[in-house]
Simulated assay, not measured.
Amino acid sequence: MPVTAVTTDAEALTMTLVGDFPAPKERLWRAFTDPRQLERFWGPPGYPAAFTRFDFAVGESAHYVMTSPQGERFGGRWEFVDIDPQSAFEVTDAFADESGAPIEGMPVSRMTFTFEATPSGSRVTSVTRFDSAEALEQIVAMGAVEGSTLAFNQLDAVLQDLREYARGKGTRTEILDDQHVRITRLIDGPADAVWRAHTDPALVRRWLFGPDGWRMTDCEIDLRPGGAYRYGWAPEAGTEGEAFGFDGETLVVEPGRRWVTTEHMIGTDYPPTTNDLSLYDEDGATLLTLLIEYPDAATRDMVLATGMTDGMEAGYARLENEVLAG
């Protein structure tokens, strides 16, 4: 994993994160100073950041909002204190409201990002300094160590060309923790077309039916927050298996970019999952990321054991070859 160390020092009132990457220092610097690249990893999985302002100059500021899978919004504000081009920059970091104004009573810290070349690529060291032990403890209790680690570990996909990053890997499933699984697949087509293929029922029916021998019997989609959807499948004649389906509701929708839903297996009392679909477009290719939150590790393992990844790969291949190609 890219993050090699995360440490806290109660005496120095600091939290330090170190990450090593197989990319030149200049490339790593761009990832942290270009807001469109920064928002791809500034925020752990499920809490992507959107920068509404980024004036990279001493005395100026940056504002961002992270949106949870349930639609909760958490804002932040940076004030740029010092910039050493290609080598380091320092900011004050504060919790902020939707307008970017700091929230009174919440901790304010100072972060320094330092970039250096290494024999295998480059390293970023992030040191966050707090005003008090109470502020450090509060931030750690809010999950800063775990969240920062998960966030920085998303940088690999940012630093590489998408096609190079995904070449030959197909559909990949990563277990992030007991409840979260991340599925990624490079789709050979632009994000707007991939979005339509996921949200237009007529197109969905052409590819979302898993292995050969199955057909989609139901496809109803309401993209509005709170809107319901329903999918159903049945085996063709000669194929073993029983009909099944899923239903749920839309929690968050950012057209062309992100769609978060609940998912429940129809006819069962299984607890629902939360499915967070996001799309990132680069040079005509789209990185599809699906973050699934399960109620517990046992449910996660039961679902993965069904061969879900193979079924999804069959669908995505069909999406590329039969829907987008046409």
Results as ranks from 00 to 15, higher is better:
254 E>K: 07
297 A>T: 05
236 E>Q: 13
140 V>Q: 01
184 T>D: 11
123 R>H: 06
291 L>I: 07
22 P>H: 00
72 E>R: 10
190 P>W: 12
24 P>T: 01
242 E>V: 11
72 E>T: 09
112 T>I: 11
247 D>R: 03
56 F>Q: 08
220 E>C: 07
259 W>A: 11
112 T>F: 03
268 T>S: 03
62 A>E: 09
153 N>C: 06
211 P>A: 15
178 D>G: 10
172 R>N: 06
315 G>L: 02
177 D>I: 09
184 T>C: 10
278 S>R: 14
146 E>G: 15
7 T>C: 06
128 T>Q: 06
139 I>Q: 05
21 F>H: 14
68 S>H: 00
151 A>E: 08
200 D>I: 08
78 W>Y: 14
270 Y>P: 02
145 V>S: 01
38 L>F: 09
222 D>T: 09
308 M>Y: 09
316 Y>E: 01
103 I>S: 10
265 M>E: 12
302 M>T: 07
56 F>C: 00
16 T>P: 06
183 I>D: 05
148 S>D: 01
229 Y>Q: 04
297 A>W: 01
28 L>V: 15
48 P>H: 00
22 P>N: 14
27 R>S: 04
314 A>D: 03
216 M>W: 12
286 T>Y: 08
92 T>L: 02
30 R>Y: 05
319 L>G: 02
53 R>Q: 15
139 I>Y: 03
154 Q>F: 08
163 R>L: 02
190 P>A: 11
102 P>S: 04
261 T>G: 11
55 D>A: 10
100 G>D: 03
171 T>S: 14
183 I>F: 07
237 A>L: 14
126 S>D: 11
203 L>R: 11
103 I>D: 08
194 V>E: 09
1 M>W: 06
2 P>R: 01
254 E>I: 14
55 D>S: 06
75 G>V: 04
236 E>Y: 04
292 I>P: 04
306 T>C: 11
226 G>R: 12
21 F>Y: 15
219 C>H: 12
66 M>D: 08
214 W>N: 04
24 P>Q: 01
58 V>E: 15
194 V>H: 09
293 E>A: 05
61 S>R: 15
324 L>N: 01
324 L>C: 09
183 I>N: 03
94 A>I: 05
105 G>N: 13
256 G>H: 12
2 P>H: 03
23 A>F: 07
189 G>E: 03
135 A>M: 00
110 R>G: 11
170 G>E: 07
158 V>T: 11
153 N>P: 05
229 Y>L: 07
114 T>I: 09
307 G>Y: 13
254 E>Y: 14
181 V>C: 02
212 D>T: 13
56 F>N: 10
40 R>Q: 13
144 A>G: 05
298 A>D: 12
323 V>N: 05
154 Q>M: 08
262 T>R: 05
184 T>P: 11
244 F>V: 03
27 R>A: 15
193 A>I: 13
159 L>D: 05
260 V>F: 10
183 I>K: 05
210 G>V: 00
260 V>I: 14
208 L>Q: 12
253 V>Q: 13
3 V>S: 02
62 A>N: 00
124 V>H: 03
53 R>T: 10
325 A>F: 00
187 I>Q: 12
200 D>F: 06
136 L>K: 00
201 P>C: 13
167 R>Q: 15
67 T>C: 07
213 G>W: 10
259 W>C: 06
23 A>Y: 06
302 M>Q: 10
222 D>S: 13
5 A>G: 07
135 A>F: 01
216 M>E: 10
